[in-house]
Simulated scan of single mutants.
Amino acid sequence: MKVQKIIFSIAIACFILTGCKNEAPEEVKKENVSLAISGMTCEIGCAKTIQSKLSKKEGVLGAKVIFTDSIANIEFDANKTSKEDLIAFVSGIAGGELYKASESFNKVKTSNKAHICSDACKDSCEMKAKKTPCKEDCKMDCCADKKS
């Protein structure tokens, strides 16, 4: 009986010692990407929803969606997600029916409200897709350069 208790104690000690390995935490590889997002129609419903969902996605360290510029600025851990994954994630929000995301290679200056957009954004602009002229109150980047 004493031998069984000793063997049982040794077995538990071995499990505890091998189960408590100190693994070095993986280093965060921070990267930034700006995504041009078409299909947003309002700041509260669209932009805030996209920003909220991005902020909760694994690997995203910070996200800011700027409705007036149709841009999402995202800081992420490249070890956990990628630019392509983020583009697919944003495009898939709301079942993939509402938004279209693409990488924006132009930086948006939010201080002076400059409307700078990538060619990919302009190509996917819903006004262009519907072949309708830009409305006077349209805030989409692809319409910004058509207004005087």
Rank of each mutant, 00 (worst) to 15 (best):
M140F: 03
K128L: 14
A36E: 12
D137I: 05
V33T: 11
G39N: 07
K30W: 05
Q4M: 10
K83R: 13
S102V: 12
S111F: 15
S124C: 02
D137N: 13
K130L: 15
G59H: 11
I66C: 02
L54P: 03
K122R: 07
M40C: 00
K131C: 01
A11Y: 13
K53D: 11
F76S: 01
Y99F: 08
E27K: 11
M127R: 12
K48N: 11
I12G: 03
E103G: 02
H115Q: 08
M40S: 00
T132P: 10
S104C: 05
S118R: 03
K100F: 10
A24D: 13
S55I: 05
K80N: 02
A13L: 15
A72R: 06
V33A: 09
G62L: 09
V33Y: 11
Y99A: 02
V90K: 06
I50S: 01
K5E: 03
C20M: 11
E84M: 03
E75F: 08
G95L: 14
N32L: 06
C125V: 05
V65T: 13
G96W: 08
G45T: 05
E26W: 02
K128M: 05
N22L: 09
S9A: 15
K107F: 00
L17T: 12
S111A: 10
S148V: 04
I50C: 05
E43R: 09
M127W: 04
A129Q: 15
F67A: 04
F76W: 06
A94Y: 07
T18F: 15
G95K: 14
K48G: 02
I74F: 07
A129N: 11
S38A: 04
E27I: 13
E97M: 08
